[in-house]
Amino acid sequence: MQREDIKEIIFKSIREETEFGGDIDESMSANDIEGWDSLAHVRIIFRIDHYLNTQIDLNSTYATETIIDLIELFIEEIK
């Protein structure tokens, strides 16, 4: 799976969970997206895991600051 595919899945998961209607950019953080609170974070990760068929360690996702970091984390997870 290419980086672009993973990015689209992550964007899709964020939109589905937060219902964020604006443009999402890789450089954005949770603070830039309405509705991305602690519970939404977990639910976003559940959704990404579901689409990518992964089971990422949730703790590692808390250390991410931007969506770029999240994309890189899932790229590593899939390897």
């Binding site: 953080s29 949770a30 603070n31 830039d32 309405e34 509705g35 991305w36 609170d37």
Partner: peptide
């Protein structure tokens, strides 16, 4: 966008709940 981000950061750090929509 900067105002939204600042609101979320402040509320996350103080009450640990952010708005679903602003």
């Amino acid at each position: 966008q900067i105002i939204k981000s600042n609101i979320n950061k402040l509320l996350q750090s103080t009450i640990e709940v952010i708005p679903r929509k602003i």
